[in-house]
Design a binder for these strands. Sequence first.
DNA 1: TTTGTAACTGGAAATCTTTTTCATCTTTTA
DNA 2: TAAAAGATGAAAAAGATTTCCAGTTACAAA
Lengths: 146, 146
Amino acid sequence: MKKISSYKPWVETLKAFGVRLTLPRKTVLQVLADNREGLTPEEVCRLGRASHPGLGLVTVYRALELFEKLGMIRRVHSGGHCQSYSASFGDTHFVVCTRCGRVTEFPCCGLLPLFAHVRARTGYEVTGHILEITGLCPDCVKSGEN
Amino acid sequence: MKKISSYKPWVETLKAFGVRLTLPRKTVLQVLADNREGLTPEEVCRLGRASHPGLGLVTVYRALELFEKLGMIRRVHSGGHCQSYSASFGDTHFVVCTRCGRVTEFPCCGLLPLFAHVRARTGYEVTGHILEITGLCPDCVKSGEN
DNA sequence: TTTGTAACTGGAAATCTTTTTCATCTTTTA
DNA sequence: TAAAAGATGAAAAAGATTTCCAGTTACAAA
């Protein structure tokens, strides 16, 4: 798993919403930028303390809630528990590796016909959806079974 | 919300897996058969006590876990928390009403092209997925805004 | 039927997980 | 730079889930 970018691209978003850029928030953002698995609040806190030892779990909860509301991160449901978060850029969905937990985004596409089908079939007016695909990432496919 | 069937269709499944048909389990099944919303363990327990006052919450947790493993019920992720369950018959997905919580199944269909797309784009070998659609059920569409 | 036994149950207590509270500290803007 | 609004983190409270364990029960075999 490689470290990706910094959290810099997110800074604009935060400024646009008039959200303060504090040390704990920067720390949480950096952790999320550095990791490509879904992380629980607990995990974010533990990882974050490497660079900011005073980081509080409550603050992590609040930061994650805020970033989710701003669309910078999203909840990952696959893999048993639903309280993990992963960075998200734009209108995408996740593929989650069932072996190593790696999360990869892919553009949201081609669901409109399905929504029409659902509407016709059930009478519901569709307003949203959760779509998450699970599978094996390229590395895990290469390195063995399951 | 209308009461649907009994839990009878499930009895075969349970027998096939060599699972005992006990009073608490029957109670949980009846609750799930009677309700078309996602129910939390707590709610199942409360509703179940109407017919079986001694029903224990721990037993409800165990029963839900078992039934989920046997594919008789599935977790509902929409609506904030992910610890609700709803009856499920066959290879389907859920549409969840964001207003009244009603859950309706629709056949799983038309996702194969998407899986191919994901594979081509991300290199993941697709093995599963979570798809849940949210919207307004016909009754809620009729009865007002929101 | 009756009976033996493995499977199941439910209360209490132990473990998490998440939220609330509140006194203190930090950004930001004026 | 100072004031004010916003943010932080420790502790405590509230919730959710699991573990333990002493009974109880469904079911198969006699």
